[in-house]
Amino acid sequence: MTQPVGIIGFGAIAQDLVAVLMGQSAQPRISVLVRDGRETAARAALGAVGLPDEAVITSDLSAFLATRPTVVAECAGHAAVGAYGTQVLEAGSDLVVASVGALADAALFDRLKSVAQAQARQVVVPSGAIGGIDVLAAAHLSDLTSVRYTGRKPPGAWAGTPAEAKHDLSRVDTPTIIFEGSARAAAEAYPKNANVAATLALAGLGMDHTQVTLVADPTTADNIHEFTLASSAVEASVQLVGKPSPRNPKTSQTTALSIARAVLNRSAAIVI
């Protein structure tokens, strides 16, 4: 990896991403944008996973963009996509979006798409915690008629979500449906848990026609993602059992790995 990379945020996904990038290059060029007053904490957290002392960590967007990153990975949540996405694209960087659910906001989606087209840049949606996106996106070019997604996580992984208002998560002892609806509604209600649903929607039938079920499941310690699709060209059923990130049980370890893959592909000679 020789091209400069920018990262927005320094939470669990950003830390995992830095660790992967450091393992792929002896001298990666990484800059990090954080909230004002968080620079010291970010340097300590990211330094612990290998970020060099000389790496730029700043809360100033202009200083961050002045490092001229070829690609910027957003790892800071829905608000960061709206706050920084267009400016990143206008500065000439591609944008990899971890918080895919933010794109359920139709106005934001249209704005990012318009700016990316005008700047000849790309907004990249990584596969995240799910697989099979390639076959879904290909099926979208045929007569795709159905996409249904089910996400299962341990009850504790739903802490801090609307599920707490309806269920005592500490007492859930059988698999319990906590949400059923469209991918758009899931992304809006569960912004930290429904990025997979949003990714499937963008690859397939869209936010309003992708059906989503979210389950608090005490029988598993993993994050289980399943989807089915039907089209005139192919029918498929995909299941992935993602191991939760040690830093954040709401996130699968594969999320950061897929973002790293998207970043590394921007400069790879052969892309898979």
Rank of each mutant, 00 (worst) to 15 (best):
A230N: 04
L17D: 02
S237D: 11
F179P: 05
G50K: 05
C75S: 07
P154I: 11
Q253L: 15
T67G: 03
V215L: 11
T70H: 14
S25D: 13
V20G: 03
Q15W: 03
C75Q: 03
R261C: 07
L65P: 04
L103M: 09
P175S: 12
D143I: 06
K250I: 08
A73K: 00
A186T: 04
V81T: 09
A26K: 13
I177K: 12
L136H: 08
A106H: 13
V5Y: 04
E235G: 15
V97Q: 01
A48T: 08
L264A: 06
A203D: 09
R184P: 02
H78N: 09
Q117P: 02
S146R: 15
Y149V: 09
L264F: 06
T58K: 08
S232Y: 03
V20C: 00
A186L: 05
L144F: 01
P218F: 12
T70M: 13
S252E: 02
A83H: 11
A197F: 07
R148Q: 10
S245R: 05
S267G: 04
V234I: 15
L51E: 01
R121Q: 14
G85W: 07
D217H: 09
A91T: 04
A216E: 05
A76C: 11
E226S: 15
H78G: 04
P246R: 04
S99D: 05
V196M: 05
Q3E: 08
R261S: 11
V124K: 02
T220Q: 11
T210C: 06
V125E: 02
S62F: 12
T176V: 13
Y190N: 01
C75N: 05
A14V: 07
D173L: 06
A216G: 07
I178C: 12
A42L: 10
A221N: 15
T220F: 13
E90S: 15
V71R: 03
I7T: 04
I30G: 00
G206L: 12
S99L: 09
R247P: 00
A79N: 11
